Simulated scan of single mutants.
Amino acid sequence: MLGIVGIIIIFVMVFGGFVAGGGNLTPVIEATPFEMIVIGGAAVGSFVLANDMGAIKHTVKDMGLVFKGVKWKPADYRDLLCLLFELIRLARQNPVAIEEHIEAPENSSIFGKYPKIMKDHAAVEMICDTMRSASMNYDDPHQVEEVLEKQLEANYHHAIHSSHAIQSVADAMPALGIVAAVLGVIKTMGSIDQPPEILGEMIGSALVGTFLGVFIAYGFVAPFATRIKSVVDEDAHFYKLIREVLVANLHNHATNICIEVGRQNTPHHIRPSFSELEEALKAVKSEAA
């Protein structure tokens, strides 16, 4: 919603201010389609040239993050802590019983309580792989933490690629606008024998290219890249919480302490309160009983 509001504000302030100052939008409107063929076409072409098909699909998909926002809401962090609580408690009470849940999470009654988390392959894989490794005595907290950190870095690097790719396009667009403007000047010089009013229109059309390159780059493309990075950074806390709880578990802290470590390491604006989480865990315990 905020993304749409931002776009409306940009258009109203830029073009509204131009018209209010006595500007005439007709030359801009008439020149825009042809200038956008040059600028937009070159931008898309350079983007395709710089990325493989997987990265292109990933970037196009991530454009929706500008409008959808973050994936993980505060309630999801509470659910994640409850899920980890159930798994850790079961693993300590009955190491054999936990195997069916971490080997086939899609059929797990525990994971099934949290469908949104279960649909996230990265989160489920991190939980199951780490707990499976612990059951095979790969349980050194420092080694596991290092492995999880590298996994988080790799996942983050993949997720943030869209932002970098779009930012590269934003950096190039002002220069592509100059290219369009230069082509317009070349066209104008080829018609130097025309009357001044015609030459003025042609020069104005050429300058629209420079305007569009800068306007689109800094008004839309760069903010899109920034917003995508912001969303990726925000959602990364969800996976860091998994790391904190599972590493605390390997330190053999009490189950409640492991969960509290994860809660306290979650940023305040998405962190469930102690009382809220306590109520949720009580519900989990009563359901299990």
Results as ranks from 00 to 15, higher is better:
174 P>Y: 03
48 V>C: 10
88 I>Q: 11
88 I>M: 07
35 E>Q: 14
245 V>N: 04
271 R>S: 12
170 A>M: 12
123 A>W: 03
202 M>F: 06
255 T>I: 10
257 I>L: 14
2 L>V: 02
199 L>A: 02
136 M>Q: 13
215 F>E: 14
116 K>V: 03
26 T>I: 15
66 V>R: 02
189 M>W: 12
277 L>W: 03
215 F>Q: 11
261 V>L: 12
41 G>C: 01
112 G>R: 02
42 A>G: 02
209 G>T: 11
126 M>L: 15
220 F>P: 05
268 H>M: 12
83 L>E: 02
66 V>Q: 09
263 R>P: 07
128 C>K: 03
203 I>V: 10
274 F>D: 11
67 F>H: 01
58 H>R: 15
288 A>M: 13
71 K>A: 05
70 V>I: 14
204 G>K: 09
73 K>Q: 05
39 I>P: 10
96 V>L: 10
226 T>Y: 12
190 G>A: 04
108 S>D: 04
283 A>R: 10
169 V>Y: 00
67 F>I: 05
225 A>D: 10
179 V>N: 12
183 L>H: 02
117 I>R: 09
222 A>E: 13
169 V>S: 00
184 G>H: 04
199 L>K: 08
114 Y>Q: 02
186 I>R: 07
188 T>N: 06
26 T>R: 10
23 G>M: 07
150 K>V: 12
170 A>T: 08
286 S>L: 13
132 R>A: 14
229 K>Q: 14
220 F>W: 05
213 G>R: 02
268 H>V: 07
219 G>W: 00
85 F>M: 11
171 D>S: 08
107 N>H: 15
226 T>P: 04
248 A>M: 14
250 L>I: 03
187 K>P: 01
10 I>F: 14
150 K>E: 13
188 T>V: 03
235 D>Y: 02
48 V>P: 04
261 V>E: 09
150 K>Y: 11
267 P>S: 10
188 T>Y: 03
133 S>T: 06
234 E>C: 15
168 S>P: 02
260 E>T: 07
153 E>M: 10
104 A>T: 14
110 I>W: 08
131 M>A: 08
7 I>S: 11
214 V>L: 10
108 S>E: 09
92 R>I: 00
84 L>Y: 01
104 A>K: 13
42 A>H: 01
235 D>S: 05
153 E>N: 05
166 I>P: 03
240 K>L: 07
168 S>L: 10
182 V>R: 03
43 A>P: 12
153 E>V: 10
106 E>I: 06
5 V>M: 12
188 T>G: 03
148 L>W: 08
90 L>Q: 04
212 L>Y: 06
214 V>M: 11
23 G>D: 01
258 C>R: 11
85 F>G: 02
95 P>V: 07
218 Y>D: 11
1 M>F: 00
32 T>N: 01
266 T>E: 15
250 L>P: 11
143 Q>T: 07
211 F>Y: 05
6 G>L: 00
211 F>I: 07
194 Q>T: 07
